[in-house]
Simulated assay, not measured.
Amino acid sequence: MSHATVIAVSTDTDHRFSKPNRSSIRLLAGLGVEGDAHLGVTVQHLSRIAQDPAQPNLRQVHLIHAELFDELRAAGYAVTPGDLGENVTTRGIDLLGLPAGTRLRLGPEAVVEITGLRNPCRQIDRFRAGLLKQVIGRDESGAVVRKAGVMGIVLAPGTLRPGDPIAVELPAPPHRPLEKV
C-alpha cells in the first residue's frame, strides 16, 4: 500500500450523479466536503432522507480507486474521476479490502474513517447503460461484491489536492469486513 495517492478531488453543490473535478476540496470534521450536496451531520442522500432524515451521515465522503476505472475501460466503459459521484479518486490502495474503521490520512491534515461500501444503484445505468453489472458482481460463493468505492466520515479537517499522499491506519483487530452503508 505504499505510494497511495489522491488522483482527483471532486465536489458539487447539487444532487447530480457526476461531480466536477476541482483543484482542491476542504474536508470538514463531522460534516464532509465543504460545499458538497452531501455535507451534513445527518444523511444527505435523497433516498436515505426519504427513509429517515435523522440517520447519522455515514456517507460524508465517497472514495473510489482509479483501478476500477482501468477495469471499466478494459470492459469498454469510458469512466473518469468524478463521473461516478465520488469526492476522492485514489490510486495504489485497495479501498475495498480495508476493514471497517480504517483511517485514511489524506494529505497533510485530513483524516477520514471508512464506514462501509457504497451501494451502487440504478442511476449508474442511466449514466452508462450496463455499468451497474460492472460495479456489482458475485464472488465464487455467490455473495454480492460491490466495487463502486467506499464511504467515510471526516474525523480531522484539511484541504486535499490531487497528488497528495494517502497513509493507512488499520483499526485494532479483530477486523470487520466492509458492509454497504
Rank of each mutant, 00 (worst) to 15 (best):
D94P: 00
Q44T: 07
R59D: 01
R103A: 08
N87S: 07
V43Y: 11
A54L: 10
R73H: 14
Q55R: 15
L117V: 00
L98Q: 06
A100F: 09
A50Q: 14
H45F: 10
R128I: 08
V111S: 14
P108W: 08
P99H: 14
T80M: 09
I124E: 12
A66P: 00
E113F: 12
V88G: 06
L84W: 00
E86L: 07
T90S: 03
Q60A: 00
V61S: 11
I93Q: 02
L95I: 08
P81N: 09
P120N: 04
I64M: 14
A54K: 11
S47I: 12
A110R: 07
N119C: 06
E86C: 09
A75T: 00
V112N: 05
V112C: 02
A110S: 13
T80W: 11
P56E: 06
V88W: 05
I124C: 12
E67K: 05
I114Q: 02
A78C: 07
L72M: 04
L106D: 13
D52L: 02
P120M: 05
R128P: 04
E109P: 05
L58H: 13
Y77S: 01
P99L: 15
G85A: 03
T80P: 00
T89I: 02
Q51S: 05
R126I: 00
A74F: 00
P99A: 14
R118D: 03
E109W: 08
H45D: 14
H62V: 04
G116P: 08
N87T: 04
D83W: 04
Q123S: 07
I114V: 15
P99T: 12
T89C: 15
G97Q: 13
H62T: 09
D52I: 00
I49N: 08
L98H: 01
S47K: 15
L95M: 10
I49W: 10
L63T: 10
P108D: 15
Q44K: 15
Y77L: 04
C121I: 01
G85I: 00
N87M: 05
C121L: 04
G101I: 06
R128K: 14
L104E: 09
G92P: 08
R118S: 03
A50Y: 12
H65I: 02
R118I: 04
V43M: 05
V111M: 15
D52W: 03
D94H: 03
R128L: 11
L95G: 08
E67N: 09
V61F: 11
E109A: 15
G76W: 06
R118Y: 06
I124W: 15
G85V: 01
P53V: 07
G82T: 09
G107N: 01
C121Q: 05
G116A: 10
R73S: 12
G92M: 04
D52A: 07
A100H: 13
I64G: 03
D125Y: 14
R103G: 02
I114C: 07
E86T: 03
F69A: 10
R128A: 13
A78N: 10
L68Q: 09
L95H: 13
G101A: 09
T115P: 10
E113M: 15
L104S: 02
A66C: 08
L106T: 09
L117T: 02
I64H: 08
A50S: 11
G97R: 14
N119K: 08
Q60S: 01
G82N: 14
D125E: 15
V61E: 13
V79L: 08
L96Q: 10
D83P: 06
L58W: 12
A110C: 10
T89H: 11
L96S: 02
A74P: 01
P53G: 07
G107R: 01
G116H: 10
E86Y: 12
